[in-house]
Nucleic acid binder design. Structure first.
Lengths: 195, 195
DNA sequence: AATTTACGAAACGGTATCGTATCGAAATAC
DNA sequence: GTATTTCGATACGATACCGTTTCGTAAATT
């Protein structure tokens, strides 16, 4: 069986493939989806254009694959109290959301949402779902410790806080630091049920 | 004095000017900032390219002017109770934020935020500030009626709810309708201080 | 060693768009 | 009636980028 899997001819280069994906994300962060051109991606990756066109039919397909391949391990913090856990989650979210890549990815998703929803779907599946689940676990633990009321809906809180962070991409808080602002929002959302 | 203001030669056409701005917004809504080309704007407006280039140096300048000229009167509702007022505000926000123009405007603002912040500034000044102020008035009235606690920060609530609505552009609520979702978020944010 | 497939630089035909120039006609002031 | 400025259709030179083709070289299998 393994003999059948052996391919005649020169094998595809894994290094080239990885370089292409990394170059794609780098340029997406720097100049955004529309401004990226295949030739620039190739140059950044140190490959030929034909090497890219052998793998992908279009820029859209390439970018979708690059996002899909973003490897981001979600660590579920367990500091023993709600705010310790949430601080860790927020810190992680800040590093990603507020980055140039995060910004341009979001812009791309919004702009293309009506014509091409795959970017939103991948972002949801690869980035948001795991964090949503981690967040829910943190809130369930907090409930068990009686730090918040049992009827708090973790998914709703997560979606609201995601919206809050998204908003700060465009309009950064003016009177507080980003961290203080996010904490005040969390307070407002969670304190409604605080014992 | 008025004689000095009289210009020799053919006056600029106000109709052409308005057509250009309207065509700009229409195409922005339909295809987004980057995909718009001057020739298409001219065709949609029914003017010549030279007519546009006489007024604007670049597409960016044109789009900034078009956004600046969006005339959107903010009506401050006064139904006598908090939820009546808020329903009216949310309804108005929905019509704008969830529109194709709203979506592409937001995408453009996010994508260009680091290189060209004028779009965000104009959006803030022309769209958000008036609504923020209207929202603050509505919440102050609610405080006077003892419908919410006095320490609620109207600006913080507004910013959070703006974030919530922005988020729904990418990830529409799945289990509830948009209106129900927004109401639940408002409940969470305001109910924390309900008497 | 022969064959097969991939790689990458370079060239290419084709299309798209920018921004300006031209020019006859129009709309004003004098 | 003359002068001035704008309008808009058209053309233009220039640049940008796409996606494919060519071809010598490399990396594998047979």
């Amino acid at each position: 069986m393994s003999e059948i899997n052996k391919k005649l001819g020169r094998p595809r280069s894994v290094e080239s493939h990885q370089s292409i994906l990394q170059a794609t994300l780098a340029l997406l962060a720097e100049i955004g989806f529309d401004a990226m051109i295949i030739e620039a991606i190739a140059a950044r990756a140190g490959v030929g254009k034909t090497t890219i066109y052998r793998r992908y039919v279009s820029k859209e397909e390439l970018v979708a694959d690059a996002i899909e391949n973003m490897r981001e391990e979600v660590v579920i913090p367990n500091t023993g109290n709600l705010w310790g856990d949430i601080d860790a989650l927020v810190e992680n979210a800040a590093q990603i959301t507020l980055s140039p890549l995060g910004r341009q990815t979001v812009a791309m998703i919004i702009s293309s949402a009506s014509s091409n929803s795959q970017f939103a779907q991948i972002y949801w599946a690869k980035y948001l779902q795991p964090r949503r689940q981690a967040f829910a676990i943190v809130l369930e633990r907090a409930k068990a410790r009686n730090e918040i009321q049992p009827e708090i809906d973790p998914d709703l809180v997560f979606d609201m806080m995601s919206g809050v962070m998204l908003y700060t991409l465009i309009f950064p808080p003016t009177t507080d630091s980003w961290e203080v602002h996010v904490r005040r929002c969390l307070n407002l959302v969670l304190q409604s049920a605080a014992v």
